[in-house]
Design a protein around this nucleic acid. Sequence first.
DNA 1: CTGGGGATGGGGCCC
DNA 2: TGGGCCCCATCCCCA
Length: 551
Amino acid sequence: MSPGEDGLIGIPFPEHSNELLSHLNDQRRTGLLCDLTLTSRGARYPTHRSVMAAVSLYFRRLFGAEEGGGEGGGGFSVCQLDCVAPDALDALLEFAYTATLTIPSSGMRDVLRGAQLLGIQCVADACRDILGETGEAEGETAGEQRPPQTTSERTVEIANVVEKISRRKTDRKKVKKVGLPHNFSPLNPLPASPASHPSPASDSFRSLPPTQPPSPEPEELHPKLGQNGDPRAIREPGRGATLNGGLLHWAQERPLIAHQPPTQNDKLSEDDDMEGLGDDMMRSSSFPSSVADRGAATSVAGGGRKRKSQTPQQCPVCQKIIHGAGKLPRHMRTHTGEKPFQCSACGVRFTRNDKLKIHMRKHTGERPYTCSHCPARFLHSYDLKNHLSLHSGARPFECPLCHKAFAREDHLQRHRKGHSCLELRTRRPRRGPELGEDGGEKEGSPLSLQAHPSVFHPRSVLEGGGGSGSIGGPSLIFPGGIDRERSLALQALAQLAPQRLAGYPELFLRGLDMQGGRDSEREDPGGTRSPALQHDRWADDMEDEEVEEGE
DNA sequence: CTGGGGATGGGGCCC
DNA sequence: TGGGCCCCATCCCCA
């Protein structure tokens, strides 16, 4: 790190979003800091306005969050939602706080209706598709038309459905037209608050009209929560609470970015004026376009690097410059964890279609890459390439310290990282400029590595360009189902990071270098693919070692 | 620790 | 401009 640019380095904490949501959920369960209570037919659900406003257009409008008034709400303490079945409301709350929709199959329609009423578009879309599409949600029959499925099968199917949804943009507007009972509508900036439709007295809670000062009057709310005792007990109005059997457990991978189609063709956050349902998804989906613009503006961030004519785009999350038209959506899936391409045979999902196609070879038995020297066949071309080196006996990658040779570069890197060769080495090659000066063995001589450039590049800049490893492997960074919870943080990043770092392309690169993920967990991830750069790092490492030993 | 297979993400080329 | 396809670099996992 150069000490010169302090305070502008973006250090992502990928787990933060997970923990944040988890803690919010804990708070909800314990009633802590809950400033909003939802009621449905007697059941009460303590919750947080901010969370509800984040997932529900209805609440966003209700609290005036979209009007840019930072006051954060109209002061509602209780919101009566009798139009949403308790089970459905419970499921939707669970979704809001865990990004996982767990509902009985029989309750799908109720959840759909609730999602529509509350403007939780991604849930509504998913339910509609599961129920048989057509957007009318009247189709439990459609759902029954399907053959019986096991839970796993359904989960798989839901994943496909979500994929379809993610690609569907026009339906959103159609959904917006769905009529809503009880006056309130996500389309209506004036929601039917408990004060605006005649029911305030029906609850012991006091409901405040939207024109009231923003104070939620917690002194009234919290005692109620206290009366509730364990809010969770309230939240469980007859919910069958296992993930097995007939329950449908939808581990949504991309709750808020779910509607961001991989094609990134949308600018809905602008042209829709946030009027669409689930527009936080739209907002999130807006960043690629803005990034594209910014990417064009900062396409020279790579300095003198050779660039293809295609406009590079900058990832709003990791700031990485993505080259190639249409590659940014692909890259974004590494952040969202979205894996739209699913193997029909085994259900394994992939972020990319081409990877799925390769995967399918495992099922078809196709191994198109055949060794000409032996019967070995391979799925990947590079496997064959590696394999051929065995026949040739070539070991072009040699450790500069112990001179052990490897057939594969990554094995050499691994060898180097382990420092297993330190005891064996007899001399230390020096990096380029010093070669020969101290009579040391020329570093290039034992190596078949490409000659490194004569200029020793600052590491901070060089490694920045090789963030593939660091941003790679979202499944590693966010194993299991928790990756979905990132979306909240990703949205914030998408909106904040570009502005914060817009003028500092070098820091973009540095941010890449520092971002979480596998790289940060490693001593030296080999963030660059360039053998020359890699070699530079090695030389740098060796120099460091020399300094240490010399002292 | 090493060899090998497989997975993942980025870039190039092309349509 | 987006997406398909391919190749490459890198990483993970297992024997």
